[in-house]
Design a binder for these strands. Structure first.
Lengths: 396, 396
DNA sequence: TCGTCTTTGTCCTGTGAGTGGAAAAAGTCG
DNA sequence: CGACTTTTTCCACTCACAGGACAAAGACGA
């Protein structure tokens, strides 16, 4: 199929496209109930959308007691590519126009290998998805990288954990390779958008989304829109001081949250504990695998290992302290916890909740849910698809 | 004069009113340069505004090389009342429609005397301003209170330092008494709006405004709009933990920022130091006045007293640590420091800057000014006038 | 002082978007 | 099969708006 290049001609059309994206196939009458346009106006705009090819007829809907309505839907051939580049792995997924995931693959890879190697991998994965018949091409791609991004240009800026990417024109390069529009954002922001679109945050206007992976970051949503800050580094909470005169951190300071708790810190602490003979469970895993990761700690904790549980609780306390400060400051309606260490599950969540509810004032915590993300590894790629569809479904 | 009751009939008129407010008298031609409307449309909207009486003709402008233009301006008789209720004093000011302060009076008063007593005082001060010929009546009033506010209703909620105000219908009561529309907000938010309108933050979209008075609070501006949070308590940073296991705080926790540094904490620390004989300067002031306040500490510091300077530096360090965290999280384009203790001036500012620039990442601090507010005590009342004028100059 | 040029303000008409009623189309249900 | 519903199309009428023409008012040079 020929790729779609059309864009909505006005705000009404954009509105309709988003309704069809989020609500699936719909009749003109149902759309009319949601948009406050006259029937005639609505018909005109729908006709124009049909002309562009973005929208197609989709048979008859069930009767509601009278004449059956003709459904319309977004073109079933539309395909978005969602790419989530993590510190240690790459996720690529393909979705239809309704942002339903049709295929999703993951591949371990160190982001420090640099943009060229990573893009090769991403393109190979995209080709694999194409080859499996899920897509003939892509109408747009969203991509998340683990660091700050100058959003309008789609260029990483001064990313601490991926120094080789500084200033690399991610958006332009990928757009060239894929032959479609591309948008780039911080991976944490995409996770927030994913949970907002299809996860726990569907109905909340202002929320925080804390991602604990190799590092720690936080997506900030204000009034339903991602807030990125003046230079694109908003939500960079990994280097907030959690422990005065604490451990040295790669950033040059001491006591950063990330130095005390994150996937990397947890793996290091667990290895140390195992070597000191504090935990037989961890020691045996260390011997078997030749190294420990957050996953091992999660498994040990699940098996009831006291040392592993202590490590998680300790980290949860630190994280909870920082989040408590953010809750006081930002007064969100929801806090979502996600990222690679979600496997640590309720032990971690309980520790975080305890700290937040203890330290923040009742007015801010009174009706504040603190929950795990619903989407797991799909949050990032869903958010990426959402990002590019928001862009393409806006007036040019 | 009869009070104005009209409101703009559409967004264009609202836009024009705000241009006239912020830019002063203007000709139709100049307005046309700023609003992207056809001359005919502009003329129609201006005529309608003239009909409502909100806007009046204002003589001829100087020629720009051709026919001289007829200026128009907001009605010179329009008056807004700005009220800033602090913990220990009340500020009331009257402004014209361009938000220029025509008169400003301050009166010491403890907010804990309760809403009835405070309102009596406010009304007396408003009457005094009227009596001095500055206003015949008020077209709207903005009022700031030192605690969280449920903004849409204009009602304080669970304010820690003014328990008697919880749920008191401030907006409705004052609207009754004054016979004009009233809007209520947190005093810190109003300070932020004041600095945004007429102070250092005129050109910045995203910034923080930290107010250090009896307590500590922070106004948050996102995309030019004040962010209030889910329950109106956003920016309540006084109870963020600054010192693990630190001093007990009135809120029940330990180590809150406010317990370690604020006008109240500073006064207490200074008294203690004086009693322990650490500072002759402070001791003599204690004896003279029978008590010490932040103002005494400022004076002692200005006189070179080492103990006073240490207290300020110590407090600045604490505050700077917390702000550093907020800067990492929020990535603002500007941080404004204001409030009663601005008298502590550059000693305080230097300590805060040191902490922030040391602890936050370069990407966030690279181009981040941290400055004192420009408006001093006028910030609150200016922000209050701005609040109500924004409301009145929006379509009904 | 006069004529030309520039700027400002008003008037007027053509266009195009949008509303809402009416009728047609397509069902349901007794 | 007929009465009633719901959806969709069609159409005429209204209204806002753009943009050109023109009038008013002043600047400036000759």
């Amino acid at each position: 199929m020929r790729r779609m290049t059309a864009r909505p001609g006005n705000a009404h059309q954009a509105r309709l496209l988003k309704l069809l994206r989020d609500g699936g196939p719909n009749s003109r009458a149902q759309l009319g109930d949601q948009v406050d346009l006259s029937r005639s106006k609505l018909a005109v705009e729908v006709d124009r959308l049909l002309e562009t090819g973005l929208v197609v007829a989709d048979g008859l809907a069930a009767s509601r007691g009278g004449r059956r309505s003709h459904n319309i839907r977004l073109h079933p051939g539309l395909r978005f590519l969602g790419v989530d580049i993590g510190a240690t792995s790459v996720d690529v997924a393909v979705t239809n126009a309704e942002l339903e995931t049709l295929g999703h693959i993951n591949h371990p890879m160190d982001v420090r290998e640099g943009p060229v190697a990573v893009f090769e991998q991403v393109l190979a994965m995209a080709a694999k998805l194409k080859a499996s018949g899920l897509a003939e091409g892509f109408d747009g791609a969203g991509i998340g990288v683990p660091g700050p991004v100058r959003f309008p240009e789609g260029v990483p800026v001064a990313p601490p954990i991926m120094p080789g990417w500084d200033g690399f024109p991610v958006r332009e390069a990928l757009s060239q390779e894929l032959g479609c529009p591309v948008m780039v954002d911080n991976d944490v922001n995409l996770m927030a958008m994913g949970e907002q679109h299809a996860g726990v945050a569907r109905t909340v206007a202002d929320f925080l989304c804390v991602k604990i992976g190799t590092g720690i970051g936080c997506g900030i949503v204000v009034g339903g829109e991602v807030y990125r800050g003046t230079t694109g580094s908003a939500g960079d909470i990994g280097h907030i001081q959690a422990v005065p005169d604490g451990r040295p951190c790669a950033c040059g300071n001491r006591g950063c949250l990330e130095a005390h708790f994150s996937g990397a810190a947890l793996a290091r602490d667990a290895t140390e504990a195992a070597q000191q003979g504090l935990s037989a469970e961890l020691a045996s895993r260390l011997e078997t695998n030749g190294g420990l990761t957050a996953v091992d700690v999660a498994a040990a904790a699940a098996a009831g290992d006291a040392t592993a549980l202590d490590l998680i609780r300790e980290g949860g306390n630190r994280t909870g302290q920082v989040i408590a400060g953010l809750v006081s400051f930002f007064n969100p309606g929801l806090v979502v916890i996600g990222g690679g260490v979600t496997g640590l599950g309720h032990t971690l969540l309980a520790a975080i909740r305890t700290q937040v509810y203890r330290q923040s004032l009742p007015l801010a915590t009174g009706n504040l849910p603190i929950v795990l993300g619903e989407l797991g590894p799909a949050a990032g790629v869903t958010g990426a698809a959402r990002l590019i569809s928001d862009h393409l479904f806006s007036p040019a």
